[in-house]
Amino acid sequence: MKSTKFTPERNISKAETDRKWWEIGDFFRRNSLWLLMYCTGCCAIELPPAMTSAYDMERLGMGPMATPRQADILLVSGYLSLKTLRRLIYTYEQMSEPRYVVALGSCPINGGIYHDSHAVINQLDQYVPVDVYVAGCMPNTEAVMNGFVDLMEQIKNKSANGWKKYHDNYEWYRQNQIQSLGEVDVHDEFHD
């Protein structure tokens, strides 16, 4: 049924309101980033000063969380062996969206000092999308904090789109994961 009155086109306005809501959401999201720390490597030693009175990440609204469901940032601190990568991917897929990945140190970038190990992966970017890298072996705490502020900027500029990329290129990521790991879900871990 066609109305004789002027009606604005609904599709555009809906996209518009969605965008508005998304920007409001982004404001809340960047000011309250909760971390899930995946502390396998040596870079984890930089986190206590970042949290306590020296640098105090709580003033940016950040803080540690207990489970992936509650967290926004997956913080990968250091190298990832094949065994731990599996768990990282599982954990990443459990996080609620939007979700971001911050990688500390040179190991997730190019393998770092483990670049020639048969058990350690070299580029984390091949398996899960990374939003912010903090380079250095290990990066000092200012650099870590700077990385978090960078992530906030990215959220503001709508360029922290790793989670969308993971959706869009899921096949590609999955293929890489399987190529390195064989199977992502281990089926006999507790011999059930």
């Binding site: 992936p68 990282l88 954990t91 459990q94 879900d185 281990v186 871990e189 507790f190 059930d192």
Partner: peptide, 15 residues
């Protein structure tokens, strides 16, 4: 079964 298991793969409901 897709619950938080601290990164472990558990496939048995009983566990």
């Amino acid at each position: 079964m897709e619950t938080y298991t601290a990164g472990n793969f558990v496939h048995d409901e009983q566990l």
